[in-house]
Design a protein around this nucleic acid. Sequence first.
RNA 1: GUCCCUAUAGCUUAAUGGAUAGAGUACUGGCUUGCGGAGCCAGCGAUGGAGGUUCGACUCCUCCUGGGGACGCCA
Length: 545
Amino acid sequence: MVREKITNLIEKAIQNAQSQRKLPKFQISAILVEKPEQKEQGDYSTNIAMKIAGITKKNPIETAEIIVEQLQNSNSQFLGKIEIARPGFINFFLSKIYLQKQIKQVLEQGEKFGDLKIGKNKKTQVEFISGNPTGPLHIGQGRGAFFGDCLSNVLAKAGYKVEREYYVNNAKNSNQIKELGKTGMSRGTAYLTDELKAIIKEQKHKIENMKSESQAGYFLCKIIQKENKDFILKKLKIKITNWVFEQDLYKENKIEKAYNLLKKKNLIYESECAQWLKTKKFGDSKDWVVKRSTGEPTYFLADIAYHKDKFDRGFKKIIDIWGADHQGHIGKMKAASKMLEYKGELNILIAQVVRLKGGLKLSKRKGQIVGLEELVDEVGLDAARFFYLAKSLNTQMEFDLELAKEQSQKNPVYYVQYAHARIQSILNKVKTQNTKHKSSRPHRYAKHCGQAKFELLEHTSELNLIKQVIRFPEVVGDTAEDYRVQRLPQYALDLAEAFHQFYRDCPVISDNKELTQARTALILAVQFVLKNSLGLMGISAPSKM
RNA sequence: GUCCCUAUAGCUUAAUGGAUAGAGUACUGGCUUGCGGAGCCAGCGAUGGAGGUUCGACUCCUCCUGGGGACGCCA
């Protein structure tokens, strides 16, 4: 990645300056290289001179001058000019030759462009959605759903070995399953929705013969879970590799085993006939009950057993994506992971609440729910995904269903898809004119385009477009590190915009055959990256619209 | 009461302590000798309030105000 190269150059420059005694000796801390928003401020820039000004005892501009002097000696081919700007930024401009060469590389790598190795094949698990099997998913859960799917894609692209998991709270003896059973037996209304009413009606005879609420609830939850599963896989097109059932943890005695382990470690004590876990000692605000006075395990104990199971499966990095109502649960879980001496990385992310505009709250237990299915039907899957992913996970999100419907035809996602389709249309035309490649496969065609004379790509719009294209690996890497997937939709928009501007300024098809070939190669590369970034978001890249 | 998240343009929102706070949408005006006008260009418009730390604060700290969530032997 370009940014890494620049970082390395700066580090070397500082070391050189130090060995020439132009700068004092000090430990070089993290060097930040970022992409400025203004074009005049370079393609990349660093604030390192300001950071170390305190140590060098020179003002930032002088410090920058010393570093730049060394940088200029380094004679690197990919950099054009290097500028110093007040109050002490060093701005880097990429060289034209370097940019032109990149397109060939993108075409050679094709779909693999942007694949990174930073994950080092680390065994990673992303657990997300994990909706209760008592009803359909609502629009609040859509957040964790698309976020988790997208983050998993990004991590995989960045070189992690990712498993995607969904945990089903279907314990037969849990209160929610009993409540569900009650509802089924017309003794309650806890989870009553139109969908459930239909199921109950259909299964009336079977339910009537059931002996207990628990049995009826478990029966109903199986049906609901199957519907949810189909919905997630087929309609939302989310990939899940493992479905884990709470009931199986009971069946396999894993809950009792976890309990005994904690007991052995002397982390459990009895009070008021219940069994308490010493979570306070491990950083949580208080201790929690793991077994009730009746002897039944709590949800928390089951969750500990579940996490122990994750740890035992050898994940080095675990990401849990939970709803906002589980926020108070983080402290306990972290405490428990310490008790179990988990050595890996446990990240718990909270997807903040989704509110409906107009004040309707979205809590599963409080009345009105808007189904995720309804939303996807209204605005379409692509738009829904884009809409969700564009927002930061830990900001509460206000959902204007009316607006979403209204905007489904002028949604930003179409802007990106339009760029992709437009490119396809041009490519089709190019191929028609050039009968030799009329029916050639994309891969072979890309190879052919790789022979183009890239030095002909000189227009500002062409160079800007290339700059956007080569940002892609950085976008993948940054997102894999900070999990801010909203970077992806923004990037896709930026790339599409750069393409539309290029389209305005530079006709691809012209009498100049060499230029036509070079520009065809360029847009082909753009198309690869557009498709790739849409793919990470789970959004389709249509050839026609 | 305690803890957590949060407040940015009319609306929906972005911004690892950096430069002129970035988009989409809405609104106003402009773009036909060309490959898809679902496009392009220009304009309008924002950091809730008061202090503090810093060369530099939407970002960190304190207080205030508003919104949400959590504080069960529910899940």
